[in-house]
């Protein structure tokens, strides 16, 4: 499974998200390849899931990957719930 964390520049925000997503995946015992990038490069990538903010999700709505929205990047519970909700369905 491949997960792409996306932010505007692919430098800071998506890296924070990637580190927290990796922590949560570890807790859930899910194995995945997590990478981060900027919103314009995301269109040429082919992940199973994209995790990003509500603000950037709109520009990714035509992407074939399932887009998961996280609002609070420091809230591990929110990240955990968002992952569980979207990966089970």
């Amino acid at each position: 499974m491949k997960i792409l964390c996306v932010c505007g520049l692919g430098q800071g925000t998506s890296l924070i998200l990637k580190m927290n997503v990796e922590t949560v995946l570890n807790q859930l015992d899910i194995e995945a390849d997590v990478e981060n990038t900027d919103v314009s490069s995301a269109s040429s990538e082919n992940p199973d899931y994209i995790i990003t903010s509500n603000e950037l999700a709109q520009s990714l709505e035509n992407h074939p990957a399932k887009v998961i929205i996280v609002n609070n990047y420091f809230d591990m519970n929110e990240i955990k719930e968002a992952l569980q909700e979207n990966m089970n369905s």
Binding site: C7, G8, L9, T13, V39, S53, E55, N72, F74
Partner: peptide, 20 residues
Amino acid sequence: QKNGPYFVLAPKIALPHARP
């Protein structure tokens, strides 16, 4: 201005940045 306020990472907290 281009990408919007996506870097408001959590309630009350913004982390503006650019590229190296």
